[in-house]
Design a protein around this nucleic acid. Sequence first.
DNA 1: TCAGTTATTGTAAAAAGTTGCAATAAGGAA
DNA 2: TTCCTTATTGCAACTTTTTACAATAACTGA
Lengths: 142, 142
Amino acid sequence: MSCADEYTPQLRARGYRMTPQRLAILHTLHHSGGHLSPTEVYEKALTQLPSLTETTVYRTLEFLAENGLAHPAHMGSGHLVYEIAHHEHHHLKCRVCGAELEVNHTLLKSLYRQLELASGYRLTDSHLTFFGLCPTCQKGEN
Amino acid sequence: MSCADEYTPQLRARGYRMTPQRLAILHTLHHSGGHLSPTEVYEKALTQLPSLTETTVYRTLEFLAENGLAHPAHMGSGHLVYEIAHHEHHHLKCRVCGAELEVNHTLLKSLYRQLELASGYRLTDSHLTFFGLCPTCQKGEN
DNA sequence: TCAGTTATTGTAAAAAGTTGCAATAAGGAA
DNA sequence: TTCCTTATTGCAACTTTTTACAATAACTGA
Ligand SMILES: [Mn+2]
Ligand SMILES: [Mn+2]
Ligand SMILES: [Zn+2]
Ligand SMILES: [Zn+2]
């Protein structure tokens, strides 16, 4: 199944249009898998669509996030990165060496339920980053 | 107790210097209480120290965060905001109307323990933002 | 109190991200 | 297929954030 086949209906269903720019960006996110900065997305997608502009990349990434096709993340660089929406997960990252671990959302399910009960809010986002020290970097401490 | 008396020893203990710039920024964070953007910090602190520059504000906020005197937060604007470090807490924010609720860290204690056990990491940060829909904005949905 | 060391700041330039607006083109209807 | 509407893009200007490097000034030790 091509990216076009997969994502075009999702946009149409919400009343939006598929464009070569959106497709190139979705394709880039889809096939790289991980978290990409807007600049990385721009550079990769450019090989597919040389007319693409950075402005469009920023706007499109925000658009895809608002519509659930991409997930934004703060990984500690201070800059937003994006990844294609697939399964619900979170991240655990070492402040010292940068080592990352994926955290299954099932581990947070009961916390989410508890927060919803206590607040009346309905929680919508499931893509957090927890920061800490990995086992290796803990040893290096005094 | 003045800001100087309170924060100077904390910096010295870590081998850093207190400067008028750092003091003005700490004073600003301390007395405004909430989350401030770098620009807001700059504008407020400027009344105390007119020679302050924006570059220094960015650098100092990052420095204070690294050293535990300020806590950075992502509140959904895409831009980092900072607050003076006081008690451990998290935030719950409505995606639609922006309403905010503070979440006591005690609610997350058992999750943190669980994550530490499962991963071997030691979690260091306690200032997350959860996003969702507040009770009022849930009604407005279809 | 003074001099030396070096952490910290300001400056200027670059990089990253945002905005307004006119031109373009996707998709629905004829 | 062709036309029409308007969502989407590109451009240019602007704002925000980062970086390199030389000048400054906070603290240490004499
Ligand atoms: Mn992720
Ligand atoms: Mn807070
Ligand atoms: Zn590590
Ligand atoms: Zn709301």
